[in-house]
Write a protein that binds this DNA or RNA. Structure first.
Lengths: 250, 250
DNA sequence: CATAAGGGTTGATCTGTATCAATGCAGTGG
DNA sequence: CCACTGCATTGATACAGATCAACCCTTATG
């Protein structure tokens, strides 16, 4: 492993089985508190493309992503869609205290979620202030990410948007370990062009075109439809328009 | 008061003096817990246009807006700016656990904030789980607002953006009480065209043009530079592109 | 093997918004 | 009273990205 950009610290994922234990809860909890969660958790699996819940539908659980990718989207009456959340493994979905989902939750890839029925989860929260604290931290992180995303949507060019998205995925992708020894970065882009366009506030054609341009310029290399190689991460970063530090997205 | 759109419930503001007692803390707290906050709070005033903190600068307090409007903005290296937060009276700014501000915080109008030094505030939070819970609720609300804002930035037309912004301000503006008896809505638009453009991801010229168009079509009436009258709120709402229910923004 | 469906690419053209530039208008200070 | 500054409006023009459309490739299906 040669050069590692400061922007490339992978997220910790100590427990592949059920990351919520670590990301949402574990940090400051005692074993018996964890056991409370252990008792009310259950798993649900979805195939790529499947909808977990529709906006407005009843959602009587909260959940954390174990494997795969889920998206949160909003739809306007005339069908315009905007993704407003991208949930990677260990991310949390659902809002304690709300009965219905405010967003369409969709499986972008095959997906496994670790779910907790809302009622018992809220009870555990009351008994265990740590969980609430951890949830607050996670929500604040999500808010920061949402705000960086707003900058992207409001002010970046299509080219910058694409570069940003690729960098974001690269930073978070678990298969980051696949980084080759010569500093290049190889990973799976787990979104269709359409999903990318919904993330970025573009059309899928524009996404495709800009991907082609970045490819022609050698900023990215593609292998098959989804496999992406970034020969020089920092060079791609320069195309995002972001200043060198910071970065809350996803 | 004749017709009141369901979207027009004003926010409660029981205490003009220091809304944080009510919005951020009060709901479930005992008097002596409130006293803890009482002891560490102090007020700061800013003139319209003044900067409260720059992104990256040290910010050793959290605060809630008492009167006036504050904005959170991000700036790109080349000067492109995007507003990512609009703080009206009773809204909360600052993140417990973070040393520096992630955003430029600016007074859009003359502004009074009720501040708490971060250290003692965090200590009170530890002693008073209610405060953390309330903060979680507020942060989740802000996240919902940010996501609705993302839909606006990513998918709405300039016209829809303007209509949305006006509706948003109208819904929250304290001087809502000025609603005339014939159902029309009169209030102060407390943002410059430039601030509006930063909120909406547009240029100020486009904002100005679209305002003129809405004015010519009779959807809004202006009096002076800032005073706005909405003759028919529901008609304006139709121009926002939103479906009739929902609405988290601000 | 033929056919269809889902995803992706590329081209031609259109259009909404940005950009550049000029003008107006109210408030303020010398 | 004039000059200046900050904010707003309006016009002419450019261009990034949307739209409409054709086509390709891979995989699935009868």
């Amino acid at each position: 492993m040669t050069r590692t950009s400061p922007k490339l610290q992978p997220y910790s994922q100590e427990c592949k089985d059920c990351p919520i234990r670590h990301r949402a809860v574990c940090a400051r909890c005692e074993t018996d508190e964890l056991d409370l969660l252990e008792q009310i958790k259950f798993y649900r699996s979805f195939e790529a493309g499947q909808t977990v819940v529709w906006a407005g539908d009843k959602m009587d659980f909260v959940a954390s992503v174990v494997t795969g990718i889920a998206t949160l989207s909003q739809t306007m009456e005339d069908g315009r869609r905007q993704m407003v959340g991208l949930l990677l493994p260990s991310d949390f979905a659902g809002r304690p205290g709300r009965e219905t989902s405010a967003y369409d939750v969709t499986a972008a890839t095959d997906l496994v979620m670790c779910c907790f029925r809302k009622k018992p989860f809220e009870e555990v929260m009351l008994k265990t202030p740590h969980i609430g604290q951890r949830l607050l931290e996670m929500t604040l992180d999500e808010l920061d990410a949402a705000r960086e995303w707003m900058l992207l949507l409001g002010r970046k060019t299509a080219r910058e948007k694409i570069a940003s998205l690729i960098c974001i995925i690269a930073r978070r992708d678990a298969s980051l370990q696949l980084r080759a020894s010569d500093g290049e970065l190889r990973f799976d882009l787990p979104l269709t062009r359409e999903a990318m366009s919904e993330y970025l506030g573009l059309t899928l054609e524009t996404v495709s075109r800009q991907m082609s341009i970045l490819r022609k310029e050698g900023l990215i290399v593609t292998e098959g439809k989804r496999q992406i190689i970034i020969p020089d991460f920092d060079r791609l970063l320069e195309e995002t328009g972001d200043d060198s530090d910071g970065g809350f997205l996803v």
